[in-house]
Design a protein around this nucleic acid. Structure first.
Lengths: 219, 219
DNA sequence: TGCACTTCTATTGTATACAAAATCACCCCG
DNA sequence: CGGGGTGATTTTGTATACAATAGAAGTGCA
């Protein structure tokens, strides 16, 4: 599936990223460049390139003495992340509403159908759900045609804690995402920027509260 | 003033950044790693580190074939940059309003006094103005205590076009900034997040329109 | 002339060796 | 037993050489 002749720095980026997102890495643990080059099978030079990218996504952090660690956030930081993501994705949705074309609308519909299929299994296929969800949001971002927004978003999505708790979501919660997406498509079809913006804001904030409940279940 | 034992990658970062921001670099011109290592006096390895940082600030861009160029934006992109900056800095101001302490308030006041001094010369000292302005906004950002916001902001400030047109601002426009800052301080003193947010939004959007007029003077 | 193909050159990518810096462990002295 | 320093070890930083790739410039053939 992946390009076998991928540059080493890209290999390193993907391997390390997966290592962190899949939860093999413990938040706060140290990552030496040496160790990372073993994990990814390339030398330290491309590893350092990969690490710079991961630093910008805030998946790894650097201590004052330049040592690397797997990121670890407080509850407040996760909250702030969702807040910022809601602001920026809502803005993206508003821009997309003004710029969207019929082909893109159709594609969004197709992706959301796949998302629904992933949910409507006897036990929902969370991996496929996350994959379809990512593609849905990425397409909107692309449609917003804002290079700067594209640069900023990676620092606000795909965080390990969030990914891991996704498996605890109920079918009802996953279905609500599909319903939100349908309403977004309706707003896009009407080319109503305000509507799209509002729906996206609700969508992200609801995701945050679903996450909070899954992460810290009340007894 | 600068640390003489600065790491080479930091030297490279500052030299290249200055090279671009001071307008010695022409938007769209190619930057080879070789050339950059000559400019900064270090080898290509630390240059590559520096370039990664500059890429995130979108001061340099990479073509599909990985060649580097000085960034060059359309009017629409500058507009979008100010819009995003207004959103995020307003959010930062709101957070800061809830968290600010007396020492920080006093410091903000002191910085704004320096800013006013820079403006109230027979011919305003634009360099000092920009310096004080930067410190004022940086302090608010720090006070917002959001690591993520801190990571995002560098991609939205200090753009070459903006810096260069700053020298064309009228004394009235520069003074208006000082007045905005005073009102921000008032909002912070009252710990009124909404007020702070509104003032910051107006402040950034006014700056955008001042910039537009300076950049594209109407006959 | 136009256009494919091939060589050459410019530029980025990677590995490795060594330098610098930070951390750690230990020992000595009080 | 504690504190401070000192040497060893780990880790990051830098330079350099070479490999791989993209772009440019020719070259020959129709």
């Amino acid at each position: 599936m992946v390009d076998p002749m991928m540059p080493a720095s890209e290999t390193a980026y993907q391997k390390i990223r997966t290592f962190i997102l899949q939860g093999e890495a413990i938040p706060g643990m140290q990552l030496t460049e040496e160790k990372l080059s073993e994990i990814s099978g390339v030398s330290r030079t491309p590893v350092r390139d990969a690490v710079r990218r991961l630093e910008n996504e805030m998946l790894v952090v650097r201590s004052a003495s330049k040592r690397l660690f797997v990121a670890d956030w407080s509850e407040g930081e996760v909250d702030e992340m969702f807040t910022l993501r809601a602001m920026l994705e809502a803005h993206a949705a508003a821009r997309a509403a003004s710029r969207i074309d019929d082909d893109t609308l159709e594609l969004l519909h197709k992706i959301n159908t796949e998302l629904k299929d992933a949910v409507n299994q006897s036990s929902p296929d969370v991996t496929s759900f996350l994959e379809a969800n990512r593609r849905f949001h990425d397409l909107i971002l692309e449609c917003a045609q804002s290079p700067r927004l594209n640069k900023l978003m990676p620092a606000l999505v795909e965080q390990p804690v969030v990914r891991q708790t996704a498996h605890q979501y109920t079918k009802t919660q996953l279905n609500q995402s599909a319903i939100d997406h349908d309403e977004l498509i309706a707003a896009f079809t009407a080319k109503d920027a305000d509507w799209a913006k509002s729906v996206m804001t609700s969508h992200i904030r609801r995701a945050f509260h679903s996450f909070s409940m899954a992460a810290v279940p009340k007894p």
